[in-house]
Design a protein around this nucleic acid. Structure first.
Lengths: 223, 223
DNA sequence: GTCAATAATCTTGTATACAAAAAGCATCAG
DNA sequence: CTGATGCTTTTTGTATACAAGATTATTGAC
């Protein structure tokens, strides 16, 4: 066994939740997980404790851990808050970005452009993450960056769903272009507004999201 | 031992951190804590795992848990983000508040007024918390409320420091008045701006905060 | 006297053990 | 056949045990 099992375990289980292997509402049996990862219940429990504090699993006394199952409204609100945080990061980035930040923003945007052009959603999913992380870094607010990364992670399962929608990649990458422009031009309020509406799930996108969550659960039940 | 020790333990340790009994940077010895609370190391570890996920303690492999010790810049950034989140809550509250919310806002503001008048900082500290929670609730965004409460908790040690500054209570409660007015009048953008500047630690207040953190650490070392 | 190397001690990380609560099951009454 | 009650099994929560890494102390060399 290498170093600090519970860190690895936490990430493994988190990943399982994000990818949908563990479905929303599913019970996470300690012994089962222990057997699966070849460890005892102790580090499993410690990993679950951390995930519960983050808000990815729910622990009810004497009844074990479940993957959280948020109503669509709550997920919508998560995107709404994420939008505000990213907007803040973008506004700060517009004011504070360095040459290195310019570089990182531009090249990560290039990456998104090419993977969007190739139509590879998995590649875009990854490049998109790099792009947004570049904005967080350019904000030069360590705490804001930490918060954005944490919430971004928590939203990963749903973000993945959104890319499935037709043309979403093209629209998304076009919005990225405008965002980069605003940040590099130092237009803080423009960047704020653009990022806010880039993230928020409004109008049709909300119904798409709800439909996606539904089908995710259906798929889960079928297994 | 009653039900679910680690919940109680988590709150106890968290409280110890907030009140400054456990100083920033202090090592949290598992056996010591176990002896103190009359339990074994297992539930202590589980509590520490949760606190580490929240960001109140730091666990380094094979070297135990420490109370986090953020540089002043990071604390400033925490208040900056808190300001943005509360601003958002205030703006939503201005648009969405119900009669019950009006009631809760007004009465919690009354509470702040009277405890500020009496000069009781502990009472004000509590009433202030009730007031801000009323705003979160009035936003009618469950996730935003959760995030605000979590960050509010994390900032409790520093918030406490701020009240020590002369006249801070009077200034704070006056700002509350304007905030209530804006929310009740439905002026979302006004509420947003007022709350943002109410929370953010700017100008002199930042140096006061840094000085407070310093003296907190001095006091810690003296023990 | 100071520094370094090694031994002793302490602390963490994980496994296992055990008690108590919840869930599942069977039996029995109606 | 249905429902309820009591028993069995399973699973959680906590304590304890043990191994391995980190820390400290001691001893010896310079």
């Amino acid at each position: 066994m290498s170093e600090n099992a519970f860190y690895k375990l936490r990430d493994e289980i988190e990943n399982g939740i994000v990818t949908g292997e563990f479905e929303p509402g599913e019970r996470l049996d300690e012994m089962q997980l222990a057997a699966r990862f070849g460890v005892s219940r102790t580090p499993i429990r410690e990993a679950l404790m951390q995930l519960s504090a983050i808000g990815l699993v729910e622990i009810r006394p004497r009844r074990g851990a479940c993957v959280v199952d948020h109503p669509p409204q709550y997920v919508f609100e998560m995107f709404e808050v994420m939008g505000e945080l990213e907007a803040m990061a973008g506004a700060l980035a517009a004011r504070r970005h360095t040459d290195a930040d310019r570089q990182a923003l531009s090249s990560s945007h290039e990456g998104c452009l090419s993977s969007a052009a190739s139509g590879d959603t998995d590649a875009y999913y990854y490049d998109n993450e790099v792009f947004h992380h570049a904005i967080y870094a350019a904000s030069h607010s360590a705490f804001l960056k930490d918060q954005c990364i944490a919430l971004h992670r928590r939203l990963r399962p749903y973000r993945r769903l959104q890319l499935r929608v037709r043309n979403r990649m093209q629209i998304s990458v076009r919005e990225h272009g405008a965002i980069v422009e605003a940040i590099l031009a130092g237009e803080a309020e423009e960047a704020r507004a653009l990022l806010r509406s880039h993230i928020i799930v409004q109008g049709d996108r909300f119904s798409d999201l709800v439909a996606g969550i539904q089908s995710m659960k259906m798929q889960a039940k079928a297994r």
